[in-house]
């Protein structure tokens, strides 16, 4: 008998009393689609967990990037709209850069897949405008451009919208720890600054 058969055999034997699974899981909690989207709530939640929020027309994204990262080096995913980048940043596109090359730049600019207003969470799904997971991990400053129509109200809304097969990173504020006396401290291994640029519906990526 191999280990697989041993483990499965033990578990089957353990269920010899044939416990009945619950007839149905009670799902009386607020389901996907129950709430309208409140952008101000998203901004509050993001700010509460020490992200910096910029609200502007899509045409002004480059200006925000300039304010945050002007004069510095950034890495960008291959599908990032180029007009989001000001002339003042030295941008390198991630074409299989090494981890060392990515760690050497100051910042990263990406788009997003979904955001959750109630929790202040941004989800990246590694689409071409967000790139490989590593590029939003090693640089110290992450600027993330989010369209209003990508914002959903609750966690169930987000789970329903993202695609399971892709690598997903759910980000709620900058890297933090609660390991020292259980006080939240921002800035451990991931980016120590998270800037979210919130632009109106249906404009990002179409410039």
């Amino acid at each position: 008998m191999n280990s697989r058969e041993i483990v499965l055999g033990r578990l089957r034997a353990a269920l010899g009393d044939r416990p009945a699974p619950p007839a149905a899981v009670p799902r009386d909690y607020r389901p996907a689609g129950a709430l309208g989207v409140d952008l101000d709530l998203l901004v509050h939640r993001l700010t509460d967990y020490r992200a910096t929020v910029h609200r502007c027309p899509e045409a002004d994204v480059a200006q925000v990037v300039d304010e945050v990262l002007g004069g510095r080096r950034v890495v960008v995913p291959p599908g990032l709209p180029r007009h989001w980048l000001p002339a003042t940043v030295a941008a390198v596109t991630d074409q299989n850069l090494t981890a060392e090359q990515i760690a050497a730049v100051d910042g990263v600019v990406t788009a997003a897949a979904v955001a959750v207003a109630e929790t202040g969470t941004i989800v990246l799904d590694a689409a071409p405008d967000q790139g490989r997971r590593v590029i939003s991990l090693l640089p110290d400053v992450h600027v993330c451009v989010l369209r209003a129509d990508q914002v959903v109200a609750t966690v169930p809304d987000a789970v329903a919208r993202v695609a399971p097969g892709r690598p997903l990173t759910w980000i709620s504020g900058p890297s933090a720890t609660s390991d020292i006396e259980l006080n939240r401290v921002e800035g451990v291994h991931g980016p120590r600054q998270l800037h979210v640029v919130l632009v109106p519906d249906g404009q990002a990526g179409h410039g």
Binding site: E118, P164, L168
Partner: peptide
């Protein structure tokens, strides 16, 4: 409300 990072891979 949500921890800073949740990673999912398939």
């Amino acid at each position: 409300r949500m921890n800073p990072y949740t990673s999912m891979w398939t």
